[in-house]
């Protein structure tokens, strides 16, 4: 078991712990990839001379050239532009879904861990949600509401909520046993203050790690939905629907699938590497040995 802690973890301590770690070169590389990705998404209109959705029938399936860096697809659209613009959708949906899952999951987890009488109800709902495969739930939600950026985001974030709730609840349950929480309770600290000052800070470190995993999962689900044809409409390029468009021409021009697939894989890989590095840096189990 962990040694008894007398004070709640604080933000400043969290930052100190992060700062004391020299990142592995692979983590540095992954961070660089993610920074480049954000820049590419922000600057997409400047980085590509072509519009990602304008079809030019005379320019169908062109090979790479200085004008079309990665060539064109079967509709004569510039592949480079489509992959760049696809990064926007992935990042926006990923960030939005992660934020939503945390904003909904965190309070539910706190309440479930602290108010024990509410716990069974919240947890049974979470068990039910977890039993339904994420893609199935997302796909069904999208079938009912009209697909748009917001609805796709909501459909993706709902299956991610249980993992956040379970994590926060578990941390709250173990923090309740800590001496400083006991002490605060004896001093008469009540519900809201107890949650805010003493229990919430305990959940931050693992929540940051979990958020990284949710971010990766959300981007993955968005691309899968678009690939299946039930995501954001085809008028908005996303890595998933760019790949889906390339399917028919796969044997003639594999590049149509290769580039969006490579962008997607590299993104997920980088997020997972950063997530694992965060876990190693923030997890008290691994950092204790060094402290």
């Amino acid at each position: 078991m962990s040694s008894p802690r007398l004070t709640a973890p604080s933000w400043s301590r969290l930052v100190r712990e992060l700062g004391s770690h020299r990142p592995h070169w692979l983590t540095g590389l992954a961070i660089a990839v993610l920074v480049a990705l954000v820049l590419a998404a922000l600057l997409a209109p400047l980085l590509s001379a072509h519009d990602p959705v304008t079809m030019v029938p005379s320019e169908r399936l062109r090979p790479p050239s200085p004008d079309h860096l990665l060539g064109t697809d079967a509709m004569g659209r510039d592949l480079w532009a489509r992959v760049l613009w696809g990064a926007r959708i992935s990042l926006v949906v990923g960030a939005g879904a992660t934020l939503g899952a945390v904003v909904i999951g965190l309070p539910l987890g706190l309440v479930s861990g602290y108010f024990r009488r509410l716990d069974p109800f919240v947890m049974r709902v979470m068990d039910g949600l977890m039993a339904i495969p994420g893609i199935l739930l997302a796909v069904a939600l999208i079938a009912i509401v009209r697909p748009s950026l917001t609805t796709v985001m909501i459909a993706i974030l709902i299956p991610e909520i249980p993992s956040v709730v379970r994590l926060v609840r578990a941390r709250v349950l173990s923090a309740r046993e800590e001496p400083y929480v006991e002490a605060a309770r004896l001093l008469g600290t009540g519900g809201a203050k107890m949650l805010w000052r003493h229990l919430l800070p305990n959940t931050v470190a693992p929540l940051v790690v979990q958020a990284a995993h949710v971010f990766a999962a959300a981007i993955l689900t968005e691309s899968a939905l678009s690939f299946l044809g039930v995501g954001i409409g085809t008028e908005t390029p996303s890595w998933g629907n760019v790949m889906a468009d390339g399917r028919l021409y796969f044997s003639i021009k594999p590049a149509l699938i290769f580039w969006p697939a490579a962008a997607l894989t590299l993104t997920i890989l980088s997020i997972n590497i950063v997530g694992d590095a965060l876990r190693d840096a923030l997890d008290p189990k691994t950092s204790k040995g060094k402290g």
Partner: peptide, 22 residues
Amino acid sequence: SVLGFSVPVFVLGYVLIGTFAV
């Protein structure tokens, strides 16, 4: 195992199709 988590199922599918089927 990090790769297995990160390579999307449909991406791996096409890599395999391209290599071993086409």
